[in-house]
Amino acid sequence: MEILRIDNLTKHFNGVTALDGLSFSIEKGTINALIGPNGAGKTTVFNIISGLIKPDGGAIHLNGIDITSFAPHRIARSGIGRTFQIIRLFSGMTVLENILLALCNKRHESLFAAILPSRAIREAEARTAEKALELLELVNLFAKKDARARNLSHGQRRLLEIARALALDPSLLLLDEPMAGLFPETAAEMRSIIRRLCDCGKTILFIEHDMKTVMDISGHIIVLNYGRKIAEGAPHRIRNEPLVIEAYLGGGSHAAA
């Protein structure tokens, strides 16, 4: 079943075409990689899907609903969680607070509840805290729950950012270079977490330069170059696609596996 469909997406920045009629779709419960040389428009795709920037043309459907014009916070609530290439945590807050923030719903966070908290709200908060600790268990950060996010190692920060995105209970998870800068053992842990999430029914779309990871864990790959899709398909097909090899070797920025 199709969870995300992107039709004819176009975006210009100051006259430069970042995306040029991009279309693709993603099946529910699969792991998908979005790859391409630097400047191909991968992060722009993420920013448009999550609503942070609006496209000049085209449409995005999530579970059949047109979310193109939704405000970014509404898109997040509709079930799209994301991480950033340059990690964006609330670095002055504790690890637990980072998760709690994402878990809390509108009702808990109202001004009225802040001034006159009812018992029901207090109880709900206790339940939220339990859920937050479960999520921290999942990414092995339970022991760090009271540490400030800025004091974590790079790998831990990546994991926390994913846990925070998961706290939204998204059906679709967008990960922007989850492996970047990770030590081999953390990278392995990250791969296993991504696989586990898929087994739990999450759909994943990730951007990655590390070809080993891409070929290893994704079931479907979309290749961008200059804002256009140049290839799409299963890893073994992409590996031998002449256009892809040319884009990577011709561009010279990143060698393919």
Binding site: S50, L52, P72, H73, R74, A76, R77, G81, R82, F84, R88, L89, F90, S91, G92, M93, E97, L100, L101, A102, C104, E109, R164, A165, L168
Partner: peptide, 18 residues
């Protein structure tokens, strides 16, 4: 907590559905 999150990183706060 949401206010402090806005102070720390507005974009990230938005992507948390706020």
């Amino acid at each position: 907590r949401v206010l402090r999150a806005i102070r720390e990183d507005e974009t990230a706060t938005i992507t948390m559905g706020k």
